[in-house]
């Protein structure tokens, strides 16, 4: 139990320390530095986010985990907002290219797709009561959107040559994929979704 916490805190801490010591930082403006770190923070939040949803984080059983999951979700949205706005201020033409899928770099497209999937997952959570979806259907939809966020963000991060160290970045991305796979395997969000959908349609 302590081991899990140590592993997670260690990888997140190491990633932040390595990024803070990057040789590229002296050549960046404060806004660019902040935008980069917002990206690292977002990746760290993405690592704990699925574990909280499944109650897999030691000390946070399902109920408590879900409550925190909502707040870390809000924090994730804020981190991505700072990341995108900060990079926009740093170089408007590069950000416009990324958002319109016209950038020369593949990681831009992965990042933007992950951003839209994050907005979709957050919207599903925010207007859950209004949507009146059956729980199984909602859960599958939210998990599918979240899966796109995880995979898109990990590919985005791996392909970028930025302030993150390659070892800590690979570890963090590996743990994030592991946490996501563990959660999806544990919660099996597809169970009952088809039946729920049919019932939903009949209503």
């Amino acid at each position: 139990m302590i081991l899990i916490w140590c592993a997670i805190a260690g990888v997140i801490g190491a990633s932040l320390v390595v990024a803070a010591g990057s040789e590229y930082l002296p050549y960046r403006t404060p806004v660019y530095v902040a935008a980069g770190f917002a990206g690292v923070v977002a990746l760290a939040l993405l690592l704990v986010q699925p574990l909280l949803a499944a109650g897999l984080l030691p000390g946070f059983p399902m109920q408590a985990g879900r409550r925190i999951h909502r707040w870390t979700g809000v924090a994730l949205m804020l981190a991505v907002a700072v990341h995108v706005v900060g990079l926009w201020i740093t170089s408007p033409p590069d950000m416009v290219d990324a958002l319109t899928f016209a950038a020369p770099t593949a990681f831009s497209a992965f990042g933007v797709v992950a951003m839209w999937a994050l907005i979709a997952a957050a919207l599903l959570a925010g207007i859950r009561k209004k949507l009146r979806l059956r729980p199984q259907v909602w859960r599958l939809a939210h998990t599918m959107a979240a899966s796109v966020v995880v995979v898109g963000s990990v590919v985005h991060a791996i392909l970028i040559e930025g302030t993150m160290g390659s070892v800590s970045k690979t570890l963090m991305c590996g743990l994030t994929i592991g946490a996501w796979a563990l959660t999806v395997g544990r919660l099996k969000p597809w169970t009952g979704a088809w039946r729920g959908w049919r019932r939903q349609a009949q209503e």
Binding site: S91, P93, D94, D97, A102, A103, P104, T105
Partner: peptide
Amino acid sequence: SMRGGANN
């Protein structure tokens, strides 16, 4: 021209 070549 390459994508993003004219940026900045």
